[in-house]
Design a protein around this nucleic acid. Structure first.
Lengths: 141, 141, 141, 141
DNA sequence: GTGGTCTAGACCACC
DNA sequence: GTGGTCTAGACCACA
């Protein structure tokens, strides 16, 4: 009922992706304590075991760590976070390039489109002062 | 059973989006005949009326046109297609910028990331030379 | 199945109106022989008696006359035809004025609209040379 | 049972026309709330879906707008209403000219007929003085 | 209550 | 066969 999983892809994989998104977008901040596995499972509408498996994968990747009696926390390891950010940024950019390429845009046109988008963005930000996405004043990684 | 619709959003809207994607990505080419409404409905796993409604919206947007007894076709109107491409490109770029911004990248870092991605891409493309409208080449890239 | 009668109005009345229209618009020309009552009734999808009653009314108005053994004919009486034309023209104009008035146009705006329409019309006629409505070279009454 | 639809033309199209008439003639005034879709459907004697489709078309044309839970309203956009009025006036005039032309009246005779009609009208109006937007006054005229 | 959406199934016109 | 239209009836979100 809650997290919108695609079929055909293992749910625990999609849990990993979703959590990564939340870390990378700043919804979960470094050092922050995660909700309990049980609560996350409830929120996602999956079995706690499935959630646990997803979180285990995240722990393997050093993105979260467990304190035996008090819960799971987002890592504060700058190195790991930086690498994660880079990987995600690369992924996003790569997807964009692929999409624009398939639409027939060449290298220069893609650059031009991005520059235009940035103009738009800065123009819009100017209107109401806020900078990035709002509601999270992320440290500039 | 087939097209993966998100809940909470009208299906006919998502049909429109999916068809736009197929046009913009070159899966459906200008002038190409679409599968019959019934077949598309079957493929998407929706009621023919719902598919009809989505296609009606596309027709209203001049993206497809109908020949009474022979089927529906992708428009060949360069003007309309160009405008569509521009709008979609803008949308993609905008989404990327939003994502990267929320990750804490500023203007220059975004540009840098895109340039890096383009380097990557051209390096990869270099292997098999392709560049422009790759809809088949894309697969083997 | 054929003539599209509104309910709430006697059919024979609507038959009269339709025949008047055909005379006035030149579909039936002065002196022309009408189809048989039976054929007209068939065409209109009504009972021959009903058609007969309508035609009787037209005969009373001198718009058609009967030759006992050879059928019914459109009158050639210029006087009657002229008066009919005038009455119909007046009716049309009156309807137009009512419509435009209810839309808030005043006297001058109505005149202006008509003049504009005439410009349009003559412009369109100019393109393909034909004058009035075509397919009937009505004598100019 | 109520709205008199012609066959051969989609009902939803005729619904659109009827509603346009009501707006243009001032029966429905700018900003006025429409009866509910269900009530209109009942009044017209059609399925609510069919009525909905017609109203949807009107909304697409910006002639009405929807407030989610309180109903549909006639637009107050002067621009749109003005354009609509112009289009309808043009249509009416065009029809009149066509009719009169087919009756053999030339340009000057049409103008003359309209002027005569306006005389008639102003004479009749003179009795009760009304002139402008008569939607009530019209009845008693 | 309001509008909005979806489905299932039917019928039509066209060729 | 194709698309187009209509109906009957259901469910949902909103407030």
């Amino acid at each position: 009922m809650a997290w919108e999983f695609k079929n055909g892809i293992p749910i625990y994989t999609q849990i990993v992706d979703e959590m990564v998104m939340r870390i990378v977008s700043g919804k979960y901040k470094p050092g922050e304590r995660l909700p309990s596995v049980r609560d996350l499972a409830l929120e996602a509408g999956v079995n706690p075991n499935t959630m646990q498996r997803g979180l285990g994968e995240l722990e393997r990747r050093k993105l979260i760590y467990t304190e035996r009696t008090s819960g799971k926390f987002i890592t504060e390891d700058e190195e790991v976070l930086k690498e994660l950010n880079n990987k995600m940024a690369e992924k996003y950019v790569s997807r964009l390039i692929e999409e624009l390429s398939s639409m027939g845009l060449d290298r220069d046109q893609i650059i031009q489109a991005v520059m235009a988008g940035l103009e738009e963005e800065s123009a819009r930000s100017g209107e109401s002062e806020s900078s990035g996405r709002g509601e999270k004043e992320r440290k500039e990684a």
